[in-house]
Design a binder for these strands. Structure first.
Lengths: 190, 190
DNA sequence: GGCTTTCTTGAGTGATCACTCAAGTATATA
DNA sequence: TATATACTTGAGTGATCACTCAAGAAAGCC
């Protein structure tokens, strides 16, 4: 009996993610979204409920994709090589709308206001950090890095470096590839 | 003949800087500023011209203070010790309204829209990077770090690390002091 | 084809945005 | 004390914000 929506919800979320990622929360108006997703206000709210609800969906999508990509890479080439490849991947992926991490941008923008989206972004960053820690732990068990390192501490430093790298990659006066190479080569000294 | 303003312009700029620094550009409304600076709209616009003009003033103040503080420290304790102290200083200074770098936050928020404040922030980050490079160069001339390092490359990596550290310090699930210590100790291996 | 159910449409909501301006007030000089 | 010259005040500007809702259009089942 019902009528089907004329749009692909997943594709819409991916599109919205790219816009939010680039322009931020306050920097993206409903008009921007309506134009890009080709949805009138009524359809938008029927489909997603609110701007914040859609933003939360795109954050989840972003975080899930990031973890999945890294874990798949680790399964393929081993934990240490995956960690060494990651810095280069996050800055040269030409398909990416912007280099800086969407979770970090969201957190930085909304944390001061106590916005719930900042908490969600924070949660996803914790997941990502634990993902890094898991890979460091595996690398340690495989003997690829020394036994007297704390994987959690390595993960925190690594994540911090990646966040800085991705922000640096947004600048055109910085050679991000050199920084990425330096971050990767640091892992050889562990 | 004229009448003097009842406020201290410099103090107002410092106050505005702290608000912009914490809440960002879009996150700070004129109402916020009017309330905090105790200025009615008319006085605000007579004094500063526009929200963007005041923001630009606060950016300049922020950048100048940062460079001056680091350079003074370098004069006092030498370039390498200053570079090693900086990571701890930027995260524990209890007087600071927020840990993340205001230049980086501004750039991340406004770059996608091509806002001129993003360009100004970018320019100030370049100044800061050159300041780091100068200190690395001095340290190298003093024999404190090996002769086969490129001071500009070291400065870019160092700045990237600091940006990541300062963003990490905003999070409450991260031990920023450990990361700061690791960044500082990396300098010993140069 | 008729009917139900959902999706689509777009004008319209009140709130808030950055900003203006004319009237009122205080002060430094003469 | 008189006057000129600012500074202060706050109601008000049009624009844009996220969001609503009632009416119309289209698709699936009988």
């Amino acid at each position: 009996m019902p009528r089907k929506p004329s749009y692909d919800r997943d594709a819409l979320i991916a599109q919205a993610r790219d816009i939010f990622w680039r322009q931020g929360w306050a920097g993206t108006s409903l008009k921007d979204l309506e134009r890009a997703l080709n949805l009138k206000p009524g359809s938008f709210y029927a489909a997603f409920g609110s701007k914040d609800a859609l933003y939360a969906l795109t954050l989840e999508r972003y975080a899930q994709d990031g973890v999945a990509r890294l874990m798949a890479m680790a399964d393929e080439m081993g934990p240490l090589r995956a960690l060494k490849a990651q810095p280069h991947l996050v800055i040269d992926a030409g398909a990416v709308p912007t280099h800086a991490c969407m979770l970090a941008k969201t957190y930085a923008e909304l944390q001061a206001k106590g916005h719930e989206l900042a908490d969600k972004a924070s949660g996803h960053m914790v997941e990502m950090k634990e993902c890094f820690a898991t890979l460091f732990r595996r690398a340690q068990q495989a003997g690829e890095i020394g036994p007297d390192h704390d994987p959690d501490r390595l993960a925190a430093r690594y994540q911090s470096d990646i966040l800085g790298l991705r922000l640096s990659a947004e600048r055109n006066d910085v050679n991000a590839a050199e920084i990425a190479a330096d971050i990767a080569s640091d892992l050889d000294r562990l």
